[in-house]
Lab assay of single mutants.
Amino acid sequence: EVRVRALYDYEGQEHDELSFKAGDELTKMEDEDEQGWCKGRLDNGQVGLYPANYVEAIQ
């Protein structure tokens, strides 16, 4: 698992997508798939998908 930080706001479009604001931190659980989606977990425990290019790894 990798900690990542959102670069942009994202509003989930489907029930299985996460929503977050730029600057939020979350945990990447799985690497992106061929469509460019990652599985992650918000700090509130919600698990879902998000676009991989909306986040950067925290060093």
Rank of each mutant, 00 (worst) to 15 (best):
R3G: 03
G45I: 00
L42Y: 00
K28W: 12
A57H: 10
L42G: 03
G23T: 05
E30H: 06
S19I: 05
I58Y: 05
E11H: 06
Q46W: 09
G12Q: 12
K28A: 09
P51H: 09
R5S: 04
E11D: 14
P51W: 03
E1K: 12
V2L: 08
A52G: 14
C38E: 14
R41F: 04
S19R: 07
H15A: 14
Y54Q: 09
E14A: 11
R5D: 00
V4A: 03
D33N: 12
G12V: 02
I58L: 15
L7Y: 03
H15M: 12
L49D: 13
V55N: 00
D16Q: 11
D9S: 07
V55G: 06
D24H: 10
E32L: 13
E56R: 10
E34C: 13
D31W: 10
G12K: 09
L7F: 04
R3M: 06
G36C: 05
E17K: 08
Y10G: 01
K28P: 05
V55S: 02
G23V: 01
Y50S: 01
N53C: 15
E14D: 13
Q35I: 13
E17W: 12
G36H: 13
A57C: 14
V55L: 02
M29A: 08
G48F: 00
G48N: 01
M29P: 01
V4E: 08
V47A: 09
G40K: 01
D9P: 07
V55H: 01
L26G: 02
V55I: 03
H15G: 14
R41K: 13
H15Y: 14
Y50P: 00
A52H: 12
Y8G: 06
R41N: 01
K39F: 12
Y8Q: 14
A57T: 13
G36Q: 04
D9A: 06
G12L: 03
V47R: 08
Y8P: 02
L18C: 02
M29H: 06
Y54R: 13
M29T: 11
P51R: 11
L18I: 15
E56L: 06
Y54M: 11
E32H: 13
G45A: 05
Y50A: 05
V4T: 03
G48V: 00
A52L: 07
A22V: 11
K21D: 07
G48W: 00
Q13W: 06
Y8C: 05
F20P: 00
K39V: 14
A6N: 00
G12S: 14
N53A: 05
A52C: 10
E11L: 11
G40N: 00
D24I: 04
A57V: 04
H15Q: 11
G45Q: 03
L7E: 03
F20R: 01
W37K: 06
M29Y: 07
D43Q: 11
S19K: 08
Q13H: 08
L26A: 02
A6S: 03
K21P: 01
A57Q: 05
H15N: 14
A52N: 04
K39T: 09
D33V: 12
D31F: 11
L18G: 01
E1R: 03
E56H: 08
V47C: 08
L49C: 15
Y10K: 08
L7Q: 06
P51G: 02
K21E: 13
A6Q: 00
E14G: 15
N44G: 12
L26D: 01
Q46E: 02
E25L: 09
L42S: 07
L42K: 09
Q13E: 10
A6R: 00
N44E: 06
C38D: 01
L42T: 08
E1A: 04
R5G: 01
V2F: 07
E32N: 06
D31S: 11
Q13F: 03
E56C: 12
N44Y: 03
Y50V: 12
D24G: 03
R3L: 06
E25T: 12
D16V: 14
L42N: 15
V4M: 14
G23Y: 05
G48H: 00
R3Q: 07
G23H: 06
N53V: 12
E11C: 06
K39L: 11
V47N: 06
F20N: 01
W37Q: 07
Q35C: 08
E30W: 13
K39E: 05
H15D: 08
E14H: 14
D31N: 11
E32P: 04
P51N: 12
K39C: 09
Q35K: 15
R5M: 12
D43G: 09
L42V: 05
L18D: 01
M29V: 11
M29L: 14
V47Y: 13
A6D: 02
E25M: 15
G23L: 05
A6Y: 00
E11A: 13
D33I: 11
Q59S: 15
D16T: 13
Q13A: 07
N44P: 02
Y50Q: 00
G45W: 02
D33P: 09
E56T: 13
N44D: 08
V47G: 02
M29G: 02
H15T: 11
Y8S: 09
S19N: 12
A6E: 01
C38G: 09
R41S: 11
E34G: 11
P51Q: 12
V4C: 03
G48A: 02
D16L: 09
E30I: 09
G40H: 00
W37G: 03
R41I: 04
V4P: 01
G36K: 14
Y10W: 06
R5Q: 07
C38I: 05
E1M: 15
A52M: 06
L42A: 11
Y10P: 02
H15E: 10
Q59N: 15
E1Y: 03
D43L: 07
E11Q: 11
A22N: 06
D43T: 08
D9V: 01
D16Y: 15
G48K: 02
E25H: 12
Q46R: 14
R5L: 07
A22C: 08
L26M: 10
G40I: 00
Q46A: 14
E32M: 13
L18E: 02
C38V: 11
G40S: 00
P51A: 05
Q13I: 03
D9N: 15
Y50N: 02
G36F: 06
G23S: 06
Q35P: 09
K21W: 05
N44L: 02
Y8R: 04
H15V: 09
E14M: 07
L7C: 08
L49A: 03
A52V: 10
P51V: 03
T27R: 05
R3C: 00
G36S: 06
L7R: 08
Y50I: 15
E14T: 10
R41T: 04
E1T: 08
A57F: 09
E30C: 10
K21R: 11
K39M: 13
F20L: 09
E34I: 06
E25G: 07
V4G: 04
E25P: 06
A6T: 04
E14Q: 12
H15K: 12
E14C: 07
L7G: 03
Y54K: 11
E34W: 11
Y10S: 03
E34S: 12
D16P: 09
A6L: 00
V47F: 07
D24M: 13
E17S: 14
K28C: 14
Y10E: 02
G48S: 01
Q46C: 10
C38R: 02
D43H: 07
K39N: 07
M29S: 05
E14W: 03
D31T: 09
R5H: 07
V2H: 06
D16W: 09
N53I: 15
N53Q: 15
Y54P: 01
D43I: 08
D33S: 13
K39H: 04
L49F: 15
R41W: 02
Y10M: 04
Y50H: 00
Q13G: 09
E25I: 10
Q35R: 14
R41P: 01
F20T: 00
Y10D: 01
Y54E: 03
E17L: 08
F20M: 04
Y54S: 12
G40W: 00
Y10Q: 02
G40Q: 01
V47P: 03
K39A: 12
G12H: 07
V47H: 15
V55M: 07
Q46F: 09
V55K: 00
V2G: 12
T27H: 11
P51T: 02
M29C: 08
G12Y: 01
T27Q: 10
E25A: 07
Y8N: 10
C38K: 02
E34Q: 08
G40Y: 00
L42H: 11
V2E: 13
